[in-house]
């Protein structure tokens, strides 16, 4: 691009242009050439429409289950409100939508679907996991090979693409049936809370239910607490916690990447 004689002026104009594109009530920025008065607004309107329509389409692609649950028309209207209140802060489209779940919590027209924000959290984690760094998952065999007295002080490192979403709603069931089935089915285990584990051991993002208490174990492991102390604390707080099932699920999903020895606390 040729150097602009007035570089700062151009940057300033671009900022005001971008701002006005996303804020509908704002006037067309001064400095936009206005040879013919009525077409100036109309032409700027083309920018507004294109930007908003493509952001809404990006949100629909990122939150397909939310879109399916509320319907396309409702979703687009809802997305436009979100775009107005939460314009993108980054030029990277893949980073857009992080605030969507929180926005849904305060969005009254969608209050009939109280589980919608948690579904959005699950879908956002799915999206983030897809773009997260690669790491090789550790096999549970490595843990089983350790001498029994070393197990208590082993620290388990978590995969960078891993996420846990605890919900009072059956979010994994709702997500799975609306992702895979032409006709959504009711949750098999009834309308009870589920905790989702999102991992990406290889190229595909996996979503599964975490057994009871396992999310607490993950939280302890994430703090760098050794396996012995972490398992003991969770067992004490949750009667239904089963360490074997928890470890099998976490290793099976590729949620654990490293095993390291440290002094026990």
């Amino acid at each position: 691009m040729p150097a602009q004689p007035d570089g700062n002026g151009l940057t300033d104009l671009q900022h005001r242009f971008a701002h006005a594109v996303l804020q509908a009530p704002l006037a067309v920025p001064s400095g936009i050439r206005h040879d013919v008065r009525p077409t100036r607004e109309r032409r700027f309107g083309v920018y507004r429409n294109n930007v908003k329509a493509s952001l809404a389409a990006a949100l629909a692609a990122r939150f397909p289950v939310v879109a399916r649950l509320v319907g396309d028309e409702f979703f687009t209207a809802m997305a436009l409100v979100f775009i107005e209140r939460h314009p993108p802060h980054s030029p990277v489209l893949a980073e857009y939508g992080a605030a969507f779940a929180n926005f849904l919590e305060g969005f009254d027209p969608a209050a009939d679907l109280p589980y919608l924000p948690d579904i959005a959290r699950l879908e956002w984690s799915h999206h983030v996991a897809f773009h997260s760094a690669d790491a090789s998952a550790a096999d549970i065999g490595r843990l089983a090979e350790l001498p029994p007295e070393a197990l208590g002080s082993v620290r388990l490192g978590l995969h960078p693409a891993m996420a846990v979403i605890a919900s009072p709603w059956p979010i994994v069931s709702v997500w799975a049936t609306n992702t895979h089935d032409a006709t959504p089915e009711a949750p098999a285990a009834g309308w009870t809370g589920e905790t989702a584990l999102v991992t990406r051991p290889h190229l595909d993002v996996l979503v599964q239910r975490l057994p009871p208490g396992t999310d607490r174990l993950v939280a302890k492991l994430a703090q760098g607490i050794a396996l012995g102390a972490a398992a003991e604390a969770v067992s004490r707080a949750h009667d239904s916690f089963d360490l074997a099932t928890a470890l099998s699920t976490l290793f099976g999903a590729g949620a654990i990447t490293t095993l390291s020895q440290g002094s026990s606390s």
Partner: peptide
């Protein structure tokens, strides 16, 4: 320690 070892073996 025994409980841990049992759980890890069962998990494997």
């Amino acid at each position: 320690t025994a409980a841990l070892a049992a759980a890890v073996a069962a998990a494997a």
